[in-house]
Computed example of a mutant assay.
Amino acid sequence: MSDQPTTEEIRQRITDLDAEIAELRRLDGDAQARRGEDGGESEGIIENEELATELTGIAENQAVIDVLLQRRESLEAKLNAAK
C-alpha cells in the first residue's frame, strides 16, 4: 500500500480547502465591515485596545488564508504531476 494520496483524495482535499478558504474570506469580510463599529452601549468612542484586537484578528485570519492558499497550490501541483 502506498502512502501517496490518490488523485480523488487530492481533489477532495482541494474542495475542502476551497470551502474553508471561502468561509474564512466571508468571516474576514464581516470583520472588515464591522471594523471600528461601536457597540450598542458605546458612547461613540472606540477603545484603542478594541481596535487593536480587531486589527490583529483580521491580520491573523489573512495569515491563515495565505497558508491555506499555499497548501492548495501544493495540492494542485501534486494533482497536475499525477496526470
Results as ranks from 00 to 15, higher is better:
Gly29Tyr: 09
Ser42Ile: 12
Leu27His: 09
Asp38Tyr: 10
Asp16Gln: 13
Glu60Asn: 10
Lys83Leu: 14
Ala77Pro: 11
Gln12Phe: 06
Asp16Tyr: 03
Gly39Trp: 00
Gln32Ala: 14
Leu27Trp: 10
Gln32Tyr: 12
Gly29Lys: 01
Thr56Arg: 03
Glu60Gly: 07
Gln32Phe: 14
Ile58His: 13
Thr56Phe: 06
Ile14Pro: 02
Val64Gln: 07
Lys83Ile: 13
Ala77Arg: 03
Ser42Met: 12
Ala81Lys: 08
Leu79Glu: 10
Met1Thr: 10
Arg25Phe: 00
Leu55Cys: 11
Asp28Pro: 04
Ile21Lys: 04
Gly44Asn: 06
Thr56Asp: 12
Arg72Val: 13
Gln32Gly: 08
Gly36Tyr: 09
Lys83Asp: 05
Arg34Leu: 01
Gln4Asp: 02
Pro5Arg: 08
Gly29Leu: 08
Arg35Gln: 15
Lys78Ala: 09
Thr7Phe: 08
Glu60Gln: 06
Ile65Cys: 02
Ala81Cys: 03
Ala63Lys: 06
Gln4Met: 09
Gly39Lys: 03
Val67Asn: 03
Gly57Glu: 14
Leu51Ser: 09
Gly40Tyr: 00
Asp16Ile: 10
Ala19Asn: 07
Arg34Glu: 02
Glu8His: 02
Arg34Ala: 02
Ala81Gly: 05
Asp16Arg: 03
Ala19Trp: 04
Ala59Lys: 14
Gln4Pro: 00
Arg35Lys: 10
Arg35Ala: 15
Asp18Lys: 10
Asp16Leu: 12
Asp38His: 12
Ala22Trp: 00
Leu51Val: 04
Ala22Lys: 03
Ala82Trp: 05
Glu60Phe: 07
Arg25Ala: 09
Ala77Met: 00
Asp3Lys: 08
Leu24Thr: 02
Thr6Gly: 14
Lys78Gln: 03
Ala82Lys: 07
Asp3Asn: 00
Met1Glu: 02
Glu50His: 05
Leu68Tyr: 09
Ala81Met: 12
Glu9Asn: 12
Leu79Cys: 09
Glu49Trp: 11
Arg34Pro: 01
Gln62Lys: 14
Asp30Lys: 10
Ser2Ala: 01
Gln4Cys: 01
Gly57Tyr: 03
Thr6Met: 01
Pro5Cys: 02
Glu20Phe: 04
Gln32Lys: 11
Thr6Asn: 05
Glu20Gly: 04
Glu43Lys: 04
Asp66Pro: 03
Arg72Thr: 15
Leu17His: 07
Ile14Ala: 13
Thr53Gln: 08
Glu23Ile: 00
Ala81Ile: 05
Glu47Tyr: 07
Glu41Cys: 02
Thr6Cys: 12
Pro5Glu: 06
Gly29Trp: 05
Ala33Ile: 01
Ile58Trp: 14
Ala52Phe: 00
Leu55Glu: 15
